[in-house]
Simulated scan of single mutants.
Amino acid sequence: MAQVRFFAAAEEAVGSPQLTVDATTLQALTASLSDEHPALAEILPRCSVLVDGVRVDGSWPLPGDAVVDVLPPFAGG
């Protein structure tokens, strides 16, 4: 199961800084999260998603011990 960590607005949308999700690909994981958390679904297309520290696309396979970070766009300076 993947450990998914949320930051900033993504954490607010989910209501938790971290969840455990059972998914075999990043696409399956994001679809599951979008279904369970409609507020996250609204911002997820603008988020950067890292798997084990590497930015990847939706078809990326997720190993059972993957750490996924969901990072919304940051503003400021």
Rank of each mutant, 00 (worst) to 15 (best):
M1W: 06
M1S: 08
A2V: 15
A2C: 10
A2Y: 04
Q3K: 12
Q3R: 13
R5C: 12
R5W: 03
F6A: 12
F6H: 08
F7V: 09
F7K: 06
F7Q: 06
A8F: 09
A8W: 10
A8L: 10
A9D: 08
A9Q: 13
A10W: 02
A13R: 01
A13C: 03
A13M: 06
V14T: 10
V14E: 11
V14Q: 08
V14F: 06
G15F: 15
G15C: 11
Q18C: 08
L19H: 07
T20Y: 00
V21D: 05
V21T: 08
V21M: 07
D22Y: 07
D22V: 14
D22G: 05
A23P: 00
A23R: 02
A23F: 00
A23I: 04
T24R: 15
T24W: 01
T24Y: 01
T24P: 01
T25F: 00
Q27R: 14
Q27H: 13
A28V: 02
A28K: 06
L29F: 04
L29W: 03
T30G: 02
A31Y: 06
A31C: 07
A31N: 11
S32A: 15
S32F: 01
S32L: 14
S32I: 09
S32T: 15
S32Y: 02
S32H: 11
L33E: 12
S34L: 09
D35R: 07
E36C: 11
H37G: 08
H37M: 08
H37I: 13
P38R: 01
A39D: 03
A39S: 03
A39E: 06
L40Q: 12
L40P: 02
L40S: 10
L40N: 10
A41F: 00
A41Y: 00
I43D: 04
I43F: 04
L44M: 10
L44F: 05
L44T: 07
P45Q: 07
P45E: 01
R46H: 10
C47P: 07
C47S: 08
C47A: 11
S48K: 09
S48Y: 07
S48E: 08
S48T: 15
S48R: 11
V49L: 15
L50W: 04
L50E: 03
L50S: 06
V51R: 11
D52N: 15
D52V: 12
G53E: 04
G53P: 01
V54H: 10
R55H: 02
V56F: 00
V56A: 02
D57Y: 01
D57R: 10
D57I: 02
D57A: 13
D57W: 01
D57V: 06
D57F: 04
G58C: 02
G58N: 10
S59N: 10
P61D: 11
P61W: 01
L62V: 11
P63T: 13
G64K: 14
D65W: 09
A66C: 06
V67R: 03
V68Y: 05
V68D: 06
V68Q: 05
D69P: 12
D69E: 14
L71H: 03
L71M: 12
L71C: 07
P72Q: 11
P72R: 11
P72L: 12
P72N: 13
P73H: 13
P73A: 13
F74R: 01
F74M: 09
A75Y: 06
G76M: 01
G76C: 05
G77S: 08
